[in-house]
C-alpha cells in the first residue's frame, strides 16, 4: 500500500503511523458523557471507503486525512488535515 502524501509524493505506508478514523470530532469539554463515549470508543468501522488519519512520521511529519477502501486498500484521496478546516 502506498499513500500519496500531498507534500512528499507517493510513499510506502511503512513511513506513516496510523491513528484511526478521521470522522470522530472532539466534543466540547462540557458535552454530555454520551458524546464523549461516542467520540472515544464507538466507530463506524465500514467495509468500504474510510476516512482515516495517518501521520507521515518518516517524511514531512504532517497529519493526513486519507480516504481508503478497507476492502481493496485503494486510496481515493489524501489531504493535509489543515485543508479540512475545523468544521
Amino acid at each position: 500500500m502506498r499513500i500519496p502524501c500531498p507534500h512528499c509524493g507517493e510513499r510506502g505506508h511503512e513511513e506513516f503511523a496510523y491513528y484511526g478514523a478521521a470522522d470522530p470530532r472532539r466534543p466540547d469539554a462540557d458535552a454530555p458523557l454520551e458524546a464523549w463515549h461516542d467520540y472515544v470508543y464507538l466507530r463506524d468501522n465500514p467495509a468500504g471507503p474510510h476516512r482515516e488519519l495517518w501521520q507521515h512520521v518518516h517524511g514531512c511529519r504532517r497529519w493526513l486525512e486519507v480516504t481508503r477502501d478497507t476492502r481493496s486498500h485503494a486510496i481515493a484521496a489524501a489531504r493535509d488535515v489543515a485543508a479540512r478546516g475545523t468544521a
Binding site: 464507538l42 463506524d44 468501522n45
Partner: peptide
C-alpha cells in the same frame, strides 16, 4: 471481524475496529 457490519444492520455502532 464482521461484527460492526452486523451490528450496523440493527442500527448499532460498536467499540470495535476490524
Amino acid at each position: 471481524g464482521n461484527s460492526s457490519r452486523l451490528a450496523g444492520m440493527a442500527g448499532m455502532r460498536l467499540p470495535i475496529e476490524s
